[in-house]
């Protein structure tokens, strides 16, 4: 029971402002409320009071400045013909030339299409899996059994992609267990790890194995937040198990599902770097090249810095636009999204 209680707390929070950026709006609200009651003390007094807080924040801000904000500023080399020997200051400016090349580059479009194809496929064949799994887990009533199953299915989330791909290779590769069994029975071996035609299935399978269990957490919290009296009332009125699932459970999950769909949309150009990096050689570029691996292979290894920076900048800006659009859609649906309307 205590464990249940805690989950309910979590779920209670779900209906309240969600995610990161809302926090700032919250903070602002709180400070505005505080400001309404009393006048703000002068800056000097506040500084005398708050300097330890600033000092504490400094290391994190410093690291972000160096490894996040400096690279963002460094993206200007996308508009240059950058050479490391002469540096950013001396490298010639070339305007949009790199972007023009990018538009004409077939392999860039191939990588983009692959990325979008994978996102779309996984939207249909990965996204619902944690929801279904959560409903299944939620129906396990014995607490110890449920805890055990939860612990097991969360675990692969903490394995590295190298490890996951390795395990899949040992199962489905040319020398893997499935091939072994097939050969023992006189059939031909089967190698899913190098087959471009089944690559979509393979990466989706890997993603399900690694992350579907972990993905249930949020849905389990949402399920725990559904008022149990609704189920009782419906049951007393004669609603069957499936009717209750359809009319109570699924509507209860709706806000979370919409939130996660939106987050996914904003993240459409990110399909995970390592998973594809690791399998690109075995499966071939045609199926496994995604935007991130494109930047790595096409530009980092050839030293075409400006070209790679241009590709990265396009991806970043498109990602930003997608997040903004996704939030607009969320607000249209009457949901929070990842940041509030301001």
């Amino acid at each position: 029971m205590p464990e249940n209680h805690a989950t309910t707390d979590v779920a209670g929070d779900l209906s309240a402002p969600a995610t990161p950026v809302t926090a700032s709006a919250d903070g602002a609200g709180a400070s505005a409320a505080a400001g309404a009651g009393t006048d703000r003390p002068p800056l000097r007094a506040r500084l005398r009071r708050d300097w330890p807080l600033l000092l504490m924040t400094l290391p994190a801000i410093g690291l972000l400045a160096v490894f996040y904000y400096v690279p963002i500023m460094g993206s200007v080399i996308a508009f240059q013909d950058y050479s490391p020997y002469v540096g950013i200051k001396e490298s010639p400016w070339v305007g949009l030339a790199n972007f023009q090349w990018l538009i004409l580059d077939a392999s860039f479009w191939d990588a983009t299409l692959n990325t979008l194809g994978i996102t779309t496929f996984q939207l249909f064949f990965y996204f619902p899996v944690p929801i279904l799994l959560a409903i299944l887990l939620d129906s396990v009533v014995r607490p110890r059994l449920r805890l055990f199953i939860q612990s097991v299915v969360y675990m692969p989330h903490f394995f590295s992609w190298v490890l996951v791909v390795t395990l899949f290779q040992q199962m489905f590769g040319g020398a893997g267990l499935i091939s072994q069994i097939l050969r023992d029975h006189g059939y031909e071996g089967l190698d899913l790890m190098t087959n471009p035609d089944t690559f979509l299935l393979l990466v989706t399978g890997e993603t399900i194995w690694k992350d579907a269990g972990w993905g249930t957490i949020i849905f389990l919290a949402a399920l725990a937040a559904i008022d149990q009296n609704l189920y009782e009332a419906a049951a007393v009125d004669g609603a069957s198990r499936w009717k209750r699932l359809w009319h109570i459970t699924l509507p209860g999950l709706r806000p979370v599902v919409i939130l996660l769909l939106i987050l996914r949309l904003g993240d459409a150009l990110n399909v995970g770097f390592e998973q594809f990096f690791l399998q690109r050689d075995a499966v071939g570029r045609d199926a496994a090249e995604v935007l991130d691996t494109f930047v790595y292979w096409r530009t980092l290894l050839t030293g075409e810095w400006s070209y790679g920076a241009a590709a990265g900048l396009v991806k970043g800006v498109v990602g930003l636009i997608l997040i903004v659009i996704a939030n607009k859609v969320a607000h249209r649906f009457g949901e929070q999204g990842i940041y509030k309307k301001s």
Binding site: G308, A309, L320
Partner: peptide
């Protein structure tokens, strides 16, 4: 940092 990802090259 949630909204914009700097590129690999920079």
């Amino acid at each position: 940092t949630f909204l914009f990802v700097p590129g690999l090259i920079p």
